[in-house]
């Protein structure tokens, strides 16, 4: 009973919590770098969600070895490889966009001397 509940829900609870925590950071913090940290946490949660919907409790890895057969009696016994391949590329894109956001943050700091979004807004006036 407990095990079944955990198998059905625990990864979704984890991904939802990560997205919620990241959203909270993005909405409340004022430092630009902290906002980028929040975006990274949201990204982790989304990737976890996409991999979790590809999984089922009796799954094996989608890799052939001498002992790991992907199909038994014509039925698939692996985790779904398609969302995994999508997430694999999404992680690398996430690194690139994070670096670009950090570079923009560094440029903002060199121009305004601060990373606080409110002070930047005041300086704009």
């Amino acid at each position: 009973m407990m095990q079944e509940f955990l198998q059905n829900w625990i990864y979704f609870i984890a991904s939802l919590s990560l997205v919620g925590v990241g959203l909270y950071i993005v909405l409340t913090k004022e430092n630009i770098f902290r906002i980028i940290v929040g975006l990274n946490i949201i990204e982790s949660g989304t990737n976890l969600f996409m991999v979790a919907i590809a999984w089922h409790p009796n799954a094996v890895m989608p890799i052939y070895t001498a002992t790991n057969h992907l199909m038994v009696n014509g039925k698939v016994v692996t985790a779904d490889p398609l969302p995994q391949s999508l997430v694999l590329t999404a992680i690398v894109i996430g690194l690139g966009t994070t670096a670009l956001a950090l570079a923009i943050g560094i440029k903002i700091f060199e121009k305004y001397g601060t990373l606080d979004v409110r002070k930047i807004k005041e300086a704009e006036k």
Partner: peptide, 30 residues
């Protein structure tokens, strides 16, 4: 644990390794 070792090795190399390093480098500049 979700039977995705490809994604796990990528996340460990990029998310936990290089991404944190890039954050710290950028933090040093500001």
């Amino acid at each position: 644990f979700l039977q995705a070792p490809d994604v796990a090795i990528t996340e460990a190399a990029i998310g936990a390794g290089l991404s944190t390093a890039i954050f710290v480098i950028a933090l040093k500049r500001v």
